[in-house]
Amino acid sequence: MRIVVENLTHVYNPKSPFATTALSGVSLSIEEGDFFGIIGHTGSGKSTFVQHLNGLIRLPSSLKRKKKKGDNTILKVGEFDLTRKKTDFRALRRKVGMVFQYPENQLFAETVFEDVAFAYRNFSEKKPTDQELEEAVREAITVVGLPYESVKNASPFDLSGGQRRRVAIAGVIVAKPEILVLDEPAAGLDPHGKKEIMDLLHTLHSSWCKTVVIVSHDMDEVAENCTRVAVFAEGKVLCVLPPKELFRRSEELLRHGLDLPLTAKVCNLLKEQGVELDCDYTLDGFVKAALARGKDT
């Protein structure tokens, strides 16, 4: 499913002294198969944007019967047109899974099994049989890398932080969404936990969910994993580029208060010393470029 957004604007608390414009005229498209990154400063509208993708924030036009004249907003996810009132938002949410920041806060059930089963039950057309349910839950818990037999009857609150996050992710992917959106999936984890979560996302990307969208502050994470990256600043999209081209524009990123991945920083330092490397800013790519360069000289 392809995501097409044009001219998307969102204002919180319109017509009051608390009014804040979170998005103003955002346009971008996310292709099927993308591992899409969204970066930007705090308050640049990233989270607001992704909440539009599964209809958690509804467009005003989808709440009223009549469309306002001159409203040229387009928001399409696959065949779902989110500007219209008739859209089946639950069917949409089944296709677009959303993992919030600190998703472990959404855990509520007595056992891990029940918590993961929650979304599967909600999204099933008719009541699933015990066997179907168990199969789906087992698969989801296994794919996030937890031992099913030993955790299924545990309380989610007895698990460690990293494990809780995995359970929370399992609780979203159990419905097998085609698009998986994650808001800062690795926030607050130690470096090892971060790596594990990113590896998990790659596993999911190649097997379960065709498209993965992550919101991130961690440039290394973005450089290493994403196929394309959108840069948000003050509610607008500055550019959408593959990391290879994006991090070449280091000055522009720094000017918007954004960081650079380690590889780009090293490339810049080398450049100051007169050594120019042509790399894609992943660690592997950097090492390859450096080795090739070493052989040349």
Binding site: R93, F100, Q106, F108, F118, G171
Partner: peptide
């Protein structure tokens, strides 16, 4: 949390009063 449960298909704003209250349990506990 309401949004997170809604994203997992919770029916928070549909159905009669009883089913709505039931649907709120996952939100309240969390």
């Amino acid at each position: 949390i309401m949004n997170a449960q809604r994203a997992r298909g919770a029916k928070l704003d549909e159905g009669g009063p009883v089913s709505r209250i039931k649907a709120f349990v996952p939100v309240l506990i969390a």
